[in-house]
Amino acid sequence: METTQRHTPKKKRKGLKIFLIILVVILAAITAYGYSIYHNINKAVSTVHKPIERTPEVKRPTDLQLTKREPFSVLLLGVDERPGDRGRSDTMIVMTVNPDKKSMEMLSIPRDTRVTLVGRGTEDKINHAYAFGGVEMSMNTVERFLDIPIDYYIKMNMEGFKDIVDSVGGVTVNNDLEFSAGGTTFPKGKIDLNGADALSYARMRKQDSRGDFGRQLRQRQIIQGVINKGANISALWKYDEILKAISKNVETNISFDEMLDIQKNYADARHNIEQLQIAGTGKMIHNGKQNIWYYIVSDEERTKVQNRLKEHLGL
Results as ranks from 00 to 15, higher is better:
residue 5 Q to Y: 13
residue 6 R to C: 01
residue 11 K to M: 09
residue 13 R to G: 14
residue 21 I to S: 08
residue 31 T to Q: 11
residue 32 A to H: 07
residue 32 A to E: 13
residue 33 Y to G: 04
residue 37 I to P: 00
residue 38 Y to L: 12
residue 40 N to E: 15
residue 43 K to G: 01
residue 56 P to R: 11
residue 58 V to A: 08
residue 64 L to G: 04
residue 68 K to F: 07
residue 70 E to G: 02
residue 72 F to D: 03
residue 72 F to Y: 12
residue 73 S to A: 12
residue 76 L to F: 15
residue 78 G to L: 11
residue 79 V to P: 06
residue 80 D to Y: 11
residue 82 R to Q: 11
residue 84 G to Y: 08
residue 86 R to K: 13
residue 87 G to A: 01
residue 90 D to P: 02
residue 92 M to T: 06
residue 95 M to A: 15
residue 96 T to G: 05
residue 99 P to C: 06
residue 99 P to G: 08
residue 101 K to A: 12
residue 103 S to H: 10
residue 107 L to N: 11
residue 108 S to N: 13
residue 109 I to H: 03
residue 121 G to N: 04
residue 121 G to W: 01
residue 123 E to Y: 13
residue 124 D to F: 05
residue 126 I to V: 14
residue 130 Y to Q: 00
residue 133 G to N: 07
residue 136 E to W: 01
residue 136 E to G: 06
residue 138 S to D: 06
residue 141 T to E: 04
residue 144 R to A: 14
residue 144 R to Q: 15
residue 144 R to D: 13
residue 146 L to H: 09
residue 147 D to F: 04
residue 149 P to L: 05
residue 151 D to P: 05
residue 152 Y to H: 09
residue 155 K to D: 07
residue 160 G to D: 02
residue 164 I to C: 06
residue 170 G to E: 08
residue 171 V to E: 04
residue 173 V to M: 01
residue 178 E to I: 00
residue 178 E to K: 10
residue 181 A to D: 06
residue 181 A to L: 00
residue 186 F to V: 01
residue 187 P to L: 05
residue 187 P to M: 08
residue 188 K to S: 09
residue 188 K to A: 10
residue 191 I to N: 10
residue 195 G to V: 03
residue 200 S to M: 12
residue 202 A to N: 02
residue 205 R to P: 06
residue 207 Q to T: 15
residue 207 Q to G: 14
residue 207 Q to L: 15
residue 212 D to W: 00
residue 213 F to V: 12
residue 218 R to A: 09
residue 218 R to M: 11
residue 220 R to N: 13
residue 223 I to H: 03
residue 227 I to C: 07
residue 227 I to D: 02
residue 228 N to W: 00
residue 231 A to H: 01
residue 234 S to Y: 07
residue 235 A to E: 10
residue 242 I to F: 04
residue 242 I to M: 14
residue 244 K to T: 15
residue 249 N to K: 05
residue 254 I to A: 06
residue 255 S to L: 05
residue 260 L to E: 10
residue 266 Y to C: 05
residue 267 A to K: 12
residue 267 A to C: 00
residue 267 A to F: 14
residue 269 A to Q: 05
residue 272 N to H: 15
residue 276 L to V: 02
residue 277 Q to S: 14
residue 285 I to M: 10
residue 291 N to V: 00
residue 293 W to C: 03
residue 297 V to L: 03
residue 299 D to E: 15
residue 300 E to G: 04
residue 304 K to T: 04
residue 312 H to F: 02
residue 313 L to W: 03
